[in-house]
Structure formats: structure tokens, C-alpha cells
Write a protein that binds this DNA or RNA. Structure first.
Length: 247
DNA sequence: CTAATTTGACCGTG
DNA sequence: CACGGTCAAATTAG
């Protein structure tokens, strides 16, 4: 339930705090890093509080976030929202995030079925590779890019590479923030049902636990960072500007 | 050569 | 009818 997520959030916050402690003792640590860590910690608190405050409402409970562990320099923020239920008590007081569309996305219109959707804010250190920071371990295929009204940077639309092969409906949007080009807002939708190994045979990884419920809750193993070294480059606008400038 | 982006058109909503 | 999301042909990358 939410319980797990609260624990997860708090654990992350603790890790960030520990990192911050280390950084504070380290003279070569940049101030920016420290601020990012503080931001991370605050986010953890905020998320935990929202989870605890909203425990009454709308369970869109199924969220399996891959377990990230102590990646430094990233802020992630996630919160789940049920598209259809609007809670009077708004959990997020996020200036960064605008409201999402209350309607469901590309997924087939499910009556009453809430499609899981959660957001995550990622802040990238200047010296960090974008792809590495933004990569969540899944392979995404870009299928569109749009200029958004108030946004300085275009929004990228990605879907799981294995959508066709395995009917994995996971989707994400990546949007660079106006203010800080190192902060990305990413919105995830749907759960990954794919298993990386299917494309290339060699799949020793666990067979799915006996028929898990198809519709709402799909718990599937986190993709232990299989292709972090992939040459795939996220073509966000900044990178594009660089590459495109060349003759 | 195959596969992945790119990019403008298309289309469903608010 | 404007926005934002998706499609698909064309193009580029590997």
C-alpha cells in the first residue's frame, strides 16, 4: 500500500541526508550538489507527508518504482494521481508542476478505470550526463515532440520500446523546466509489463508470478539497469541545439 | 541494412 | 479553435 511508498520515500530521504553529510565534510563538494541534496531531502518529506495525509482517498495504489539507489545528483519526485478523482485537499503544492490533464492519455478510454500516472522531477547536475540521469533503466522510444504553450522547451513523448512486442503500455513525457534547464519534469504513465529479456532470448529472469491480475496492479521486477551504457541519447532540446548547429 | 528520431500533419478535447 | 498528444513518412544514426 501507501505504507511501502512512505517507507521508500523516507528511506530515500535518509540516504540523501547521509550523502549531504558526506558532502559537507568534503571541501571539494560543490554548493550546487549540496543544494540538490537538500532539495532531495525536502522532496522526500513532502512526498511522505502527502502520502500520509491522503491515505483516505482514492487508491491508485499500484506503483512499483524501480528501486533506485543513491544516485547522486538527481532529484526525483513522484506522486501518484488518480486522473478521475479530484481530491479537495491538494497534496502537491508544486510550483513546478502544472496540473495534468484530467483525462486519460493515450491508453484506451477505460471507464472508471484510473490509469496510474505519476510524476517525477529530475534534476541533473551540470557535470552529469543527461542520459544517465534521465535514464530509468527502461528503454524508451521517442514518438513525438511538441512545443508546449508556456514552456520554453519542447516536451518529448516516449513509449516503451517493447510496446508492440509485449503490449507494454508504459509512457513517459519529459519536459525541461523553464527556470532551470537542469531540472526535468517527467510524467510516467502506466506500468511496465515488459521484460527486457524477451527481445533477446536469454531470459533467466523470473517468470512472472502465477497469473497476476492483468488490469490494475502489475508488479514486475525492476529492470536492474540493464543498459545504462547504451549509446542512446536523449535528444532534449539542449542537446539538439548542439548537434543541430553543426553544418 | 535495420532501427530509431525527427517533424509536420492529424485529431480529439476543453 | 487552440492545445496537447499521436501518427507516420522521411531522414539520420548505428
Amino acid at each position: 500500500m501507501d505504507h511501502k511508498r512512505v517507507v521508500y520515500e523516507l528511506t530515500q530521504g535518509k540516504e540523501f541526508a547521509e550523502q549531504l553529510k558526506i558532502h559537507l565534510n568534503n571541501p571539494s563538494s560543490s554548493q550546487e550538489t549540496q543544494e540538490i541534496l537538500i532539495h532531495n531531502i525536502l522532496n522526500s518529506y513532502e512526498n511522505s507527508l502527502s502520502l500520509l495525509t491522503n491515505h483516505v482517498l482514492t487508491t491508485n495504489g499500484s506503483n512499483d518504482e524501480p528501486h533506485f539507489h543513491g544516485k547522486k545528483g538527481i532529484i526525483r519526485k513522484m506522486e501518484s494521481q488518480a486522473p478521475f478523482s479530484e481530491s479537495p485537499c491538494s497534496e502537491d503544492s508544486d510550483p513546478e508542476f502544472k496540473d495534468l490533464d484530467p483525462n486519460d492519455f493515450g491508453a484506451k478510454r477505460k471507464r472508471n478505470g484510473s490509469i496510474e500516472k505519476w510524476k517525477k522531477q529530475v534534476k541533473v547536475r551540470g557535470d552529469m550526463e543527461f542520459e544517465e540521469a534521465l535514464d530509468d533503466g527502461y528503454s524508451w522510444k521517442k514518438y513525438g515532440q511538441k512545443d508546449i504553450l508556456g514552456a520554453k522547451h519542447p516536451r518529448g513523448y516516449y513509449r516503451c520500446t517493447y510496446r508492440q512486442l509485449q503490449g507494454c503500455l508504459a509512457t513517459k513525457q519529459v519536459q525541461r523546466t523553464n527556470e532551470d534547464p537542469n531540472i526535468f519534469n517527467m510524467t510516467y504513465q502506466g506500468t511496465h509489463t515488459c521484460h527486457p529479456a524477451t527481445a533477446t532470448d536469454t531470459s533467466p529472469t523470473l517468470p512472472l508470478p502465477s497469473s497476476s491480475s492483468p488490469p490494475p496492479e502489475i508488479q514486475h521486477p525492476p529492470p536492474q539497469n540493464q543498459l545504462l551504457g547504451s549509446p542512446k541519447i536523449l535528444q532534449t532540446d539542449a542537446l539538439m541545439m548542439v548537434t543541430k548547429h553543426l553544418p
